[in-house]
Structures are given as C-alpha cells and as structure tokens.
Design a protein around this nucleic acid. Structure first.
Length: 682
DNA sequence: TAAATACTCGTAGTGTGACT
DNA sequence: AGTCACACTACGAGTATTTA
C-alpha cells in the first residue's frame, strides 16, 4: 500500500493525528501496552460469549486501521504472510461484524439503524460495481495508450490526426458554442471596441438561445418562463445583478416557507442552549447586510461560518472524528479510504454532517473537502511532467471535463487536474503562448475597461504611440526575451511599453475603480492566447503595479502632500517649496497632483480662494474618508470578537471531547507510529 | 535577490441524481 | 415536482519554486 504521507519543505501532511494531540501522553502509551497484552489474551478466548466477540472485533479493527498510515515495503511483505494466515480469522470477523451490526441496531443512537442494515445488504452490490469500474478503467487506460501510439505513428507519417471520441451531449453542446464563437472571432481578429461590444452581445444572445433550446428539450415549461425572463434581464441589465434560476426559486420558496423557517429557527435556538452569542452574531451579520436570510438554509453549505485556513487543531479534531467514525463502523483502512474517496450511497446519508459536527463553526462542505484532500494519496504530487500534461489533454479530449475520472486515471486529485488544465490555457491550450505582445496587453486593458464599464486609457495617446512604434507592436515583448529588467534593480531600465502605458492612463478614473470585480476567465476566453493565470499574474505583477503603485497617488501620498503644504504656513501657492514634501514623489509630481486635488473639491483657480481654505477643505475631505475607514474598522473589530468567541467554543469543545479508553489507545498508537516513522526518515 | 511562474487551498455558487 | 446531500466549478488568494 502506498504511503499516504508526503513531505514538502516546511509542510508535512499526515493522516495520523500528530503530536498536537497533547492529551495523549506517555502514560497512556504505557497503559496501552498493558491493555494490548490483555487484549491478546482476550482474543484467544473469542468464542466464549457474544459480548467478548464484540470487544475483540473492535480490537482487531485497531490493528487493521494502523494500515492507514502506510508501512514500508518490507513491513508490508512481512505483514502479507501474516495476513494470509489470518485470512480465515478475517472470515470469522466478517461474520461477527454482521452480528455486531444487528446488535448495534438495538443500542446505537448516533447512526440510523436502518442505514446500517441497508449498508450491510448493499456491500455485495458495491463490490461488484467496483470491480466493473476497475475493468472499465483498465480498458480506458489501454485506449489512451493506443491513441498515443497511433498519434506518434501518424506524426511520423505526416498525417493529421483526429481522435474519434464518444462524445457526450455536453461535449457536443460545448463544441457547438466554441465553433460559433471561434468563427466569429476569427472573422473579427482585427477588431475595434465597437466590434468587441457587438461580439459580446451576439454571444449573449447565442448563449440565451442555446439555453432556451436545451430547456425546450427538457420540457420544463415552468422553468422556461423564468429562464426567458432572466435571460432578458441578462441582456439588458448588469451582469452582477443577474442571478441563477435556483437562487430566484429559492428566494421565492423562502418567502413562501417563512413559517417553516421560523419553526426551524425556534427549534435550533432551543438546541443551541446559549443564545446570547448566537443572537449577537446573527445581528452582526444583519448589520453587515450579507447572509441573514440564507442562514439555516442548508447545513451543507452554510454562510457565516468561519473561513480561512484550517488550523492544525481543527485538522486534528477532524481526523479524530473520521477515525472515530471508522472505528464505530468497524472499517478497515482501505474501506475508510474508499468511503472517503467514492461517492456515498443513499444508505450513508448524513455521515459527513455527523463527522463534521466536531467543528460546528465550519461548513460541512469545507470539512468534507479538507478530509478528501488529506486522505487522498494522490494529493501533493508536485510538479507536472510533460507526459502527464499530454495525458491530461488526451483524457480531457476523451472524457470531457470529468475531473474525478481523469484524476483517477492520471493519479492526481480532481482539483489538481482541473487547475493544471486551466493553467495551461483550458480549451485554448493549443493557442497559448507564454510571451506577451503589446497588442495583447492593450486587449486585456480594454476588456477590463469593458467589465468595469469605464475607460481609463487615453485613446489619442494610444494611437500616437501605435503610430510611432508600429514595427514593434507585433514583436514579443516578454521581458525575459528582451533582457529588460523591470524593477529588478534601481538602475534598471524601465520597460518601454509599461512606461508608455503609464502615460496613457487617466488616474482620476482609475482611482475610483474596483478591480476586484474583474472576471479573469472571461478575459481568457476572449483572448484565447493566454491562460487565466497568465493574465492575472500579468495584471497583478506588472500592469496594476504600473498603474497604482509606482505612478499613481494613493491616499497616504495625498495626505502627506496636504500636510506638507500646511506645515509650511505660506499664504500663497507660489511660496510652496515642493521639495520639502516627503511622500516619495518628485516635486513636479506633487505640483501636478496639487492641481488635481484642487479641482476635485471644486476650486476654480489658484487665486480665487485662499490657500489655507483649500487645505482645510482637503483635510476635511480626508477626515470624512478616514471616518468611513474607521467605521469599517469597527466592523472588523466586531468580526474579530466573533471569531474569538468561536475559538473559545472550539476550546470548550476540545475539553468536552471525552474519548473512550479504546479510542485513546487508537489515537495514541497512531501518534506513536507516526513518530517512529519520522525518526526512521530522519 | 526579487520577479515570474507553478502549485495548492478555501469558499461560494451551481449542478446532479436518488428519493419521497 | 420538490428535497436532500453531495459533486462539480469558478474564482481568488496564499505559498513554494524557478528564473533572470
């Protein structure tokens, strides 16, 4: 069995609850040894009574579950021989399990008894299905190899090669869309802004038409009406205002089912016990205007939960919870892994909510995601090889965007495959070129303008620049190729294109923009020659820096400028010594900026108002602005308090975690094993 | 050494299929 | 047809690694 533990620099991943489970100390380990010996004695006396049978099954599961951490190959081989000997015992154990299931039904309160029965009955079916799946995978792998071979042969012969796929309906639809789009965009390669606008409108219309057609196919008349209305809104109104069918539907349902919700709320409040914190947090959310309505909507994806990276404590609690679940179900390590990785049956509904109940401040979905990653032996595979990338592309051609399947075939996680495919350019990966042209940069800027619905590029200056440098426009301008160092050292030459761009930008417009609204995938889809990561990195690392950081004035710079002028106590603007202002800008920049600031508060000319008046007005302006910032800071402080409360709850939960002695043994054995292996690796 | 790039992770929203 | 529990996807952001 492959090891589930992979290491990176400064990053160790483990399935075993690590040393942060401080409750399990050395004393426990000693006690465990004693108990283990006792257990062995008890194992020999298996057949005496049913109760003893139960206990023995659990102890066996302890031994089996140790496999979760993986063993070295030698250990595995030695264990294999042992396992062969104990196969007969396993059969008995399986028999005993069924009996134990029946006995648990009468006693178990946590898990539904019927579910257990059903799961026991469906185990056989599952095994058969899994075998069939394995056979399918083997077949597919064979197909991929054949395709590769035939591809390479075809390349040698100089013949163009097309893979004949078994296309799903979705693929066909996607291809139709792509074809139409590509036809249009190929026709309009040399496009101007108006052409871009027309394209977008046409695309939207086409999309809406396609959606209508698909809906007609589905014969969902009620949904049709809603869809059409929404689509009309999409065409006419802002993109941000449009919402999905389901959201609208759910909102309608919410309005209708207010009474039911109130009942749910009441029952939940009764369950929660301490209401003060909850109420305060809910009120906070209402103040922030975000998700008060959506609360209690779904347990799976709950808004208002704590967000951010999972702490080690949280991870340990989660892993512990998973172990306890596996323990309660008498799962072997492999069974547990299969349970985590495969889609669960209806017979096992609610298991994840049960497991995630250890962390009530996290959504079940995020807990599920974390566990799926942590227990996935395909996670953390590192860098992609070229072969892997080719295989990925082939598999996407074969199966479409079914990442779970592809990930299984490649040996990486689904998310990993999806992200990689995106990073190499998604559907346009064949057209992707790493190097940037000036034309592409301008296109990106224009798309951003389009999305933010404002224009910050000076068209006249752009045209002038283009006329001056026409011969350079189509050259690759990647800095690495041209050996131009951008901001790598103080003495380096500035990139001529970025310098030119900086002169084309209207900073007054830029300052009011909210760049967080940019949707990179849409830009990538339109540009076709760059991946999402390419564009976002270019923007974050060069373009935005060029616009905001180096050449633009930020609030702090403005405030320093105003205070610098005020501190000089001069009566007239002519008397200002611009060199005394220390905000990192040149005197000339500050002089120009001063004119802009004056215009922003509506002063007509230099001599119409006294200098002191202007300064006071500007200071007021920034005071008000600062007040807004303070308000938002107060909100943040409240949120911090909320988080602290949540942390306290977690600690309380930790204290309340009363493991059974056997569970303590399990976890501490995990810990012991983990430490041993770490020492071996060292 | 810092920029550029690649990899990884978490969240919010949408889609899906079995069941009632 | 509606519900539930999960899977899939888009996106943003953080971090590690590579490169000039």
């Amino acid at each position: 069995m492959p090891r589930l533990v992979t290491e990176k620099k400064n990053k160790v991943r483990f399935i075993v609850p690590p040393s942060d489970n401080q409750k399990f100390e050395k004393d426990n380990i000693q006690k465990e040894d004693i108990q283990q010996q006792k257990n062995k004695k008890e194992k020999k006396e298996e057949t005496k009574s049913e109760k003893k049978n139960k206990e023995n099954k659990k102890k066996n599961s302890v031994d089996i579950e140790l496999d979760i951490f993986g063993e070295s190959n030698d250990e595995q081989e030695s264990q294999k021989s042992k396992k062969l000997k104990t196969q007969e015992n396993k059969k008995q154990i399986n028999k005993n399990r069924k009996e134990s299931l029946l006995s648990e039904i009468s006693s178990d309160a946590g898990v539904g008894a019927q579910e257990i029965l059903k799961s026991a009955l469906k185990q056989k079916k599952q095994k058969k299905e899994k075998e069939i799946k394995k056979q399918e995978i083997l077949k597919i792998q064979g197909c991929v190899k054949e395709i590769k071979k035939s591809k390479s042969e075809a390349k040698k012969k100089g013949v163009t090669f097309n893979i004949q796929n078994e296309e799903t309906k979705q693929n066909k639809q996607n291809k139709k869309k792509e074809e139409k789009k590509s036809e249009q965009e190929n026709d309009n390669n040399e496009e101007e802004e108006e052409d871009i606008e027309q394209e977008e409108e046409e695309e939207q219309k086409q999309q809406s038409n396609l959606e209508k057609k698909s809906d007609k196919k589905n014969k969902k008349t009620n949904k049709q009406e809603i869809n059409i209305k929404i689509e009309e809104e999409q065409i006419s109104e802002n993109q941000g205002q449009t919402k999905s069918k389901k959201q609208n539907k759910n909102q309608e349902k919410q309005n209708l089912n207010n009474s039911q919700q109130s009942i749910q709320l009441f029952s939940q409040q009764q369950q929660m016990g301490s209401q003060s914190d909850e109420e305060s947090s809910i009120n906070l959310h209402k103040q922030l205007g975000s998700f008060a309505q959506d609360e209690n909507k779904k347990k799976w994806m709950q808004k208002g939960k704590t967000s951010g990276k999972f702490s080690e404590e949280e991870l340990a609690l989660l892993r512990n919870s998973v172990c306890r679940y596996a323990y309660s179900k008498n799962m072997t390590s492999q069974e547990l892994l299969k349970f985590i990785q495969t889609r669960n049956d209806r017979t096992q509904l609610g298991t994840w909510t049960q497991i995630a109940s250890v962390l009530p401040d996290r959504s079940v979905q995020s807990c599920h995601n974390v566990i799926r990653r942590q227990y996935n032996q395909n996670n953390y595979k590192g860098k992609w090889s070229e072969e892997e990338v080719e295989e990925l592309i082939d598999l996407v051609e074969l199966h479409g965007r079914k990442w779970e399947k592809i990930g299984e075939l490649i040996g990486r996680t689904a998310g990993n495959c999806r992200d990689k495919y995106k990073s190499i350019g998604d559907r346009n990966h064949q057209n992707r070129e790493k190097l940037w042209t000036f034309e592409e940069i301008i296109k990106v800027m224009k798309y951003i303008e389009k999305q933010l619905k404002s224009k910050f590029i000076d068209r006249e200056k752009l045209e002038e620049f283009c006329q001056q440098n026409v011969h350079m426009l189509f050259e690759k301008i990647d800095n690495q190729k041209l050996n131009i160092n951008v901001n790598r050292s103080k003495n380096s030459q500035p990139d001529p294109y970025l310098e030119a761009l900086s002169n084309m930008i209207n900073y007054n417009v830029v300052k009011k923009l909210n760049f967080e609204q940019i949707k990179w995938t849409k830009i990538s889809d339109k540009l076709k020659t760059k991946s999402v990561d390419d564009i976002r990195n270019k923007w974050n690392n060069q373009l935005q820096v060029c616009i905001l950081k180096d050449l633009g004035f930020q609030d702090k710079d403005d405030q320093l400028l105003i205070e610098g002028i005020k501190d000089q106590y001069v009566d007239f603007e002519k008397e200002i010594d611009w060199t005394l202002i220390e905000n990192g800008k040149t005197p000339e920049q500050n002089k120009q900026r001063w004119i802009v600031l004056k215009k922003s508060i509506g002063t007509d000319g230099i001599y119409n108002q006294e200098l002191a008046e202007i300064v006071m007005k500007l200071k007021k302006f920034y005071k008000d602005k600062y007040a807004d910032i303070k308000n938002s800071q107060n909100k943040l402080i409240k949120v911090d308090q909320q988080i602290k409360n949540a942390q306290q709850k977690k600690e309380n939960l930790k204290l309340n975690l009363n493991n059974t002695p056997q569970e303590n043994i399990l976890v501490s054995l995990y810990e012991k094993k983990y430490m041993n292996r770490k020492e071996q690796e060292k």
